[in-house]
Design a binder for these strands. Structure first.
Length: 230
DNA sequence: GCGACAG
DNA sequence: ATCTTGTCGC
């Protein structure tokens, strides 16, 4: 018995129209609130790597929130299930990512995704939202580039400004390192924006991106090379 | 109409 | 995402 509910890939969308319809259908189920008493003792970072052949490898690295030390990791590989389409990244990334998560013995307390959560144009349902609903685990999106409008936050670490789309606050530009381009944080599911930003700051004591990113990035790239044959 | 567009 | 040379800084 896994901590993760099964993912039925036979009904995975194969067209942009069906994918967008699914996003519209799932959007109302998002809960942007941290469950009472929630504790984030372990945090997982997710990443994917692609080969020109269409092969994909996903990696998950779990770390202890207090020490930022890795405590578990897993990889999974397969074929890209969807082309890259702006706004539909989740349909490309989730199948392999989910397979990697299935290999973990226990559920992480928080999943940190590469990309957007609610800071997603038009449908407000980015990768982090989708993965949050599928896993039931709190998720946040940390993107390197933004969709939406924001004012440049102050130069010091911790400075933040709201990101808005059509006038609605959908995330926050957060300076994780003094004098360096901010990251763009948005809620995925089961966490609030303030808590999400606090978690991202806790994960970035020295680099712009969360501590585990290099680890997850190196892990899936190395695994992809092995699976592909260098 | 044209360009821009998470990873 | 991925492909690449050089460069700056701790």
């Amino acid at each position: 018995m896994s901590w993760l509910p099964p993912l039925d890939l036979t009904s995975w969308p194969t067209t942009a129209e069906k994918a967008m319809a699914l996003q519209d259908e799932l959007r109302p189920l998002i809960c942007p609130v941290t469950p009472p008493g929630a504790r984030f003792r372990t945090v997982a970072r997710l990443d994917s790597a692609y080969a020109d052949t269409g092969a994909v490898t996903a990696a998950v690295v779990v770390l202890a929130a207090d020490t930022l030390r890795p405590v578990a990791s897993a990889v999974a590989h397969g074929a890209a299930a969807f082309p890259y389409v702006p706004g539909l990244l989740a349909f490309r990334e989730i199948p392999a990512t989910f397979a990697a998560l299935e290999k973990l013995c226990t559920a992480p307390d928080l999943l940190v995704c590469d990309g957007q959560g609610l800071a997603h144009p038009r449908r407000r349902f980015g990768l982090a939202c989708h993965l949050g609903l599928l896993t039931g685990v709190p998720t946040i999106g940390v993107a390197k580039t933004v969709w939406g409008e924001y004012a440049e936050p102050g130069p010091e670490r911790g400075a933040a400004t709201d990101i808005t789309i059509d006038g609605a606050v959908v995330g926050r530009a957060l300076r994780t390192r003094a004098g360096v381009k901010p990251v763009f944080v948005s809620v995925g599911h089961r966490i609030d924006l303030d808590t999400a930003c606090a978690q991202v700051l806790a994960l970035t004591p020295r680099y712009r991106l969360p501590e585990t990113t290099r680890h997850a990035d190196h892990l899936c790239r190395a695994a992809l090379r092995t699976a592909t044959g260098n």
